[in-house]
Design a binder for these strands. Structure first.
Lengths: 225, 225
DNA sequence: GCCTTGTGGTGACTAAGTCACCGACAACCC
DNA sequence: GGGTTGTCGGTGACTTAGTCACCACAAGGC
């Protein structure tokens, strides 16, 4: 974890921070630490307790859970401009992390130690809004995830995930294993489903690579039921 | 929804409210509405938006999601002394309810309209703590639920649920269908698992009734993996 | 008595997950 | 180049979970 200088102009890049009153902005500027991390680094792990509030400026962090049998599932991702609710939740309720957070890209974040976080929450309505708006909408997303896992067929879930991950050109670079982790299932299940999609002519695949060839029919799978 | 007088002494019954500074307490007393509801009433449903913050004084509300195929799963319960995060989340982020809330007993609650809620959040650190502590710990519970649904076998999950629901005497009055809703699975799956537990001598059952006869071995099922 | 509703039991089937293994291929070292 | 190693993906055989259709029985209303 390397530290960068404190006098970058990150605060203006971060739109919602830019909207804060001048007093809050200068409080943050003088108290926050800017932190940088490479890709595939662990930000936190189960059993740890957060010591600082984190605001992502740039990059992406995935938060995933590891089950008993070693299977994993991705709960959500935090990207530039957002804070991690897991961290906020644990800070607020003084609990341990249950999941792990892993950087997926180079990441730049702002860290505020607990006492500074408490001070801002207490004194800045704008900062409170910034923290709790995202926080709240993440809860509804988590509930939607429960429904997804409990009730949706995996062909539906895989089709959705492929569409979500595909860039405009319908190309995805990902392994079957990584897709299994996205959905919290087993690699073989993904492999077989991918084979079926390919037999149907919906996609083309090669090692570590998937190409959507019939987006329309794939969307039919995604939106069924 | 019937209204009771505003001058009950509910505020002292609610320990965490009792800890609030006098100014906050009197603000709540003068602005809050006390609401009473019978059992099995819908408090909110998917698509609605909350218009007031709710603090449960007495009773129990279950929050559950209905999936596409009509299957249901219970996300969590709110009981006396707690606020409903779903409501708080939707208030804070201006979103619609995704799940439904149903009273399980007679319920007494305190309702604070949005503007009064905002005022307290802004001006009372103690009220903020009260709201967000529970809020935060509920998030970690939701994540644990995701793991449970995604990775645990249903014999494990059922054993756990039976132990959780059993009173001290190991007696539970519940139908197979209701158990299926608790776990987000199908009634037949529960019926068969119950049959296996009975064949193993772990429980005794009759219509709408389950009795744990070998708690120790049932706990082995619950704690496996 | 009959009829309706709620409850749970069951067989036959499909879907999903597990286990064990294997082959293809890429990366790396020598 | 050849050899080793690790990742990636394919597959058969099996178990577990969920679905579908139907039936039997109990409780309560009429």
């Amino acid at each position: 974890m390397s530290e960068a200088g404190n006098n970058l102009d990150w605060i203006s890049r971060f739109e919602e921070l830019g909207a804060l009153p001048a007093a809050d902005r200068s409080f943050i500027e003088s108290h926050a630490r800017v932190v940088q991390l490479g890709p595939e680094k662990k930000v936190f792990a189960p059993g740890m307790k957060p010591d600082a509030f984190l605001l992502l400026l740039d990059g992406k962090v995935r938060v995933q859970q590891v089950g008993a049998g070693g299977r994993e599932i991705i709960l959500y991702r935090v990207s530039g401009g957002e804070s991690c609710i897991m961290t906020t939740a644990c800070l607020l309720s003084d609990e341990e992390y249950l999941a792990e957070g892993i950087t997926e890209t180079d990441v730049t974040a702002v860290a505020l130690v607990r006492s500074d976080f408490d001070h801002l929450i207490a004194h800045s309505p704008a900062f409170r809004r910034l923290v709790f708006n995202k926080y709240a909408s993440r809860i509804t997303r988590l509930m939607a995830l429960v429904e997804d896992v409990a009730f949706q067929r995996i062909d539906t879930r895989l089709a959705r995930k492929l569409l979500e991950l595909s860039r405009g050109d319908g190309v995805i670079d990902i392994t079957h294993h990584a897709l299994a982790v996205e959905l919290g299932t087993a690699r073989e299940v993904i492999s077989r489903q991918i084979k079926r999609f390919m037999a149907e002519g919906l996609i083309n695949t090669s090692r570590g690579h998937i190409e959507i060839t019939d987006r329309e029919r794939l969307e039919n799978f995604a939106h069924q039921a």
